[in-house]
Structures are given as structure tokens and as C-alpha cells.
């Protein structure tokens, strides 16, 4: 791949590789914008959700996914946790000069498959090639639009003491898969990224527990970060119970060896939902009934005090403060 100037080489790249891979036909003239019909939201109280995210990951492929699946599911999930049904996505590529065509093609195909699986269309995009060293292989930006139905209103401010905290499955799979995929630690463990779209399970959750306060996808910074954001945003305390947080043995093993805390590991297909206590049972059942939530658990609850503080009840009766991550996980013990 060479550094294009927007001329014929670029057109060939887009028409010859990217568009076919993403399932668009090169016979449709390329317009400068996508034009979208939004009949559903006109006049019936619904709202548009709009988000964007850039994806950089090393390596591009890892067990359970690649940058293409991340770019689709990440943006889909950012829409979904607001209660939106994702509809269309844009896709911008920044390619490093010299990136093999085969890799680009593979990533485009997996984007297309992920989009299809999630039921969203990629309707517009852009491609730039930058000189060697100006980017690392391939960066992807996706923006997405979704429709939020009329009565859905998920907000951190709605969190109340007594609410239950629900997690849809094992923590840390993605982070562990990336560590393994980097290959520089000779980790011998069977771990797969949990990269998956969450809008379906969220729809199921909202149907079963319409009082759900808010939902967040648990990504970089891990569960600890989401909990702290919730606690600080809502001015409440939160308690999670170590024994109830699902972590796969292989992931736990990696954490033990490396001295990492699964609470801080990245995920790409996990959500944390805050649900009023009276709906928690139904919510848990609904989560578990979905393939994305077979291992869902109630992992803790919202406390009135102290505001902004997250606490982990450990197996032996310890109560540790769960902080936001400060830099690396730097040892503190003297």
C-alpha cells in the first residue's frame, strides 16, 4: 500500500477493496454524504443517539476478534448503552503506508461481518494513507446513529441507594486476550476477547426491567472505572462483592501472574446495569436468557454513603477502596 494523493490509486483502493468488502456496490455513485430516512423518530417522541470512537489496537487481530469487530461493536455498544437501537455507522480509515492489502482486506471483511451480525449498515466513510511511522498500521474511526425509543431515559442521575448492580458475564476477557496476543510474555492460556454487540441484550433487559436506571459498557479502565464514574456522577456509594464477580480461571491466572486486578482489565462486550432492587430478579433472568449474558450476575449494590466511593467486600471480610486507576498499577505498600 502506498501513500495516495486522493487520485486514481485511492479510488482503486476504495472501489476495489473497501467498498466490496463492506458490501456496498461500486455502481452506486460516491456521494459526499449518506442520506438517511428517519421516519421512526419524526413526531413520536423518540430521539437520535449519535456517537463516535476511534480504534487503535496492537495487535490488529487477537483471539476472539480484531480491530474491525472492535470498530463496529464498540460504537454499536456506545449507542446501545443509551438505550438506542443502532442503525447506521460511518467508517474512516487511516492506513499506514506499507500495510499489506491482505490485512486490510481481512479487517474490512470482519467489519462487514460484524456490521451484519449487529444489524447496522455502514453508510459513509473516508480513507487516508499516511507516511510510514505516522500511524501504526491501521486506525479506524466509526461514528454511529441510533434511535432511542420514546420512553427510554437512561441517566446516571437516576441512580438511587438500594439499586442493584448487574454484570452480564466474565470480566477481563478482552484485556487478557490482548495481553496474550501481544505474544511478548509467552502467556499460555486459553482466553478469547468478549467482543460482541450489546444492543440486543440491552433491549431484552429494558423490556424485563423498564425501571433500569442506567447502563454503561465496561471497556478500557475496566469495571472499576465505570463504578467510580457512576458513584461520582450520582453522588452515591457503591459496594461490590468479590465472590460474586465472574472471572474465568484462565483470566484470573493471568492476573495472578502479572499482578493485575481483573477490575481494571478492558472488556468489549460487557455491560454494567443499575437496576432498582424490585426489578433486579427479572433483569438478571432476562440477561441470562440472552447469549451475551449467560453468566450474568448481581455483583453489588448502591449505597447512600459515602458519596463517590466504591468498595470491594473481599472474601475474608476485608473492605478495600476501589479507586480509579492512577497511571500503571503502581505498588503502594511500604
Amino acid at each position: 500500500l502506498s501513500h495516495g494523493s486522493g487520485g486514481k490509486a485511492m479510488r482503486d483502493l476504495i472501489e476495489g477493496l473497501i467498498l466490496p468488502a463492506l458490501g456496498a456496490s461500486s455502481t452506486t455513485p460516491l456521494e459526499d454524504q449518506a442520506r438517511i430516512d428517519v421516519p421512526e423518530i419524526v413526531g413520536n417522541g423518540g430521539r437520535i443517539a449519535f456517537t463516535t470512537d476511534s480504534y487503535v489496537v496492537d495487535p490488529l487481530s487477537f483471539p476472539g476478534g480484531d480491530i474491525g469487530t472492535l470498530a463496529i461493536n464498540g460504537t454499536v455498544n456506545d449507542l446501545a448503552v443509551g438505550g438506542a437501537r443502532p442503525t447506521v455507522l460511518s467508517c474512516s480509515l487511516i492506513l499506514e503506508e506499507g500495510l499489506p492489502f491482505a490485512i486490510l482486506e481481512k479487517m474490512m471483511c470482519s467489519m462487514a461481518r460484524a456490521a451484519q451480525a449487529a444489524g447496522v449498515r455502514i453508510v459513509t466513510g473516508d480513507t487516508k494513507v499516511v507516511p510510514r511511522g505516522s500511524a501504526d498500521k491501521l486506525f479506524i474511526n466509526t461514528a454511529g446513529i441510533g434511535i432511542i425509543p420514546k420512553d427510554v431515559n437512561l441517566e446516571i442521575a437516576r441512580i438511587r441507594p438500594g439499586d442493584q448492580l448487574l454484570l452480564n458475564g466474565h470480566l477481563g476477557d478482552h484485556g487478557a486476550a490482548i495481553l496474550k496476543a501481544r505474544g511478548d510474555l509467552a502467556l499460555d492460556a486459553d482466553v478469547q476477547s468478549d467482543c460482541q454487540p450489546l444492543h440486543r441484550i440491552i433491549a431484552a433487559l429494558l423490556a424485563a426491567a423498564p425501571g433500569t436506571r442506567c447502563i454503561r459498557d465496561v471497556t478500557r479502565g475496566g469495571l472499576a472505572t465505570v463504578l467510580n464514574e457512576f458513584a461520582q456522577g450520582a453522588g452515591v456509594g457503591m459496594r461490590i462483592v468479590e465472590d460474586s464477580i465472574p472471572v474465568r480461571p484462565a483470566v484470573r491466572g493471568i492476573c495472578e501472574v502479572l499482578g493485575l486486578d481483573p477490575l481494571y482489565l478492558a472488556n468489549e462486550g460487557k455491560l454494567l446495569a443499575v437496576v432498582p432492587a424490585e426489578e433486579a430478579g427479572a433483569a438478571l433472568e432476562a440477561l441470562r436468557a440472552c447469549p451475551e449474558g449467560t453468566n450474568a450476575e448481581i455483583i453489588g449494590e448502591v449505597l447512600p454513603n459515602p458519596p463517590g466511593r466504591v468498595v470491594l467486600s473481599s472474601h475474608f471480610g476485608g473492605e478495600r477502596i476501589v479507586d480509579m486507576l492512577v497511571g500503571e498499577q503502581l505498588p503502594r505498600i511500604c
Binding site: 511478548d184 510474555l185 509467552a186 502467556l187 499460555d188 501472574v257 502479572l258 499482578g259 493485575l260
Partner: peptide, 15 residues
């Protein structure tokens, strides 16, 4: 113990 992993950690300063 997974000594190969520790050796890599040590060499690279990872964790």
C-alpha cells in the same frame, strides 16, 4: 510456576 512468563516480564520490564 510459569517461569517463561516471569522471565519475559523481567526482560521487558512488563509488570
Amino acid at each position: 510456576q510459569p517461569l517463561a512468563v516471569y522471565e519475559h516480564m523481567w526482560r521487558q520490564g512488563t509488570r
